[in-house]
């Protein structure tokens, strides 16, 4: 271990703000990109599902109409 104690580690030889700012920003950006990408998959699947269900309903409606038509 390069630093003598934990406080020295946090202090970074007086450059704490800059070092932790860099690491913090990088970490934040990468994590948010990952989270957005992972979540997008679920929302995408849901979007497609609701679209499929809508199409299915429309098909059924149309079928219902067709089967009703001969009677009238």
């Amino acid at each position: 271990m390069h630093f003598a104690n934990f406080n020295d580690f946090i202090d970074m030889g007086g450059y704490a703000f800059f070092v932790w700012l860099s690491y913090g920003c990088a970490f934040f950006l990468i994590i948010s990109l990952t989270v957005v990408s992972v979540r997008r998959r679920k929302s995408l699947l849901r979007e497609i599902q609701s679209k499929q269900q809508r199409d299915e309903k429309l098909k059924q409606l149309r079928k219902g109409k067709n089967s009703n038509e001969p009677k009238t």
């Binding site: 970074m12 030889g13 007086g14 450059y15 800059f18 070092v19 860099s22 690491y23």
Partner: peptide, 8 residues
Amino acid sequence: QQGESYRI
């Protein structure tokens, strides 16, 4: 030369 700031 740059102290700990080089860790960036």
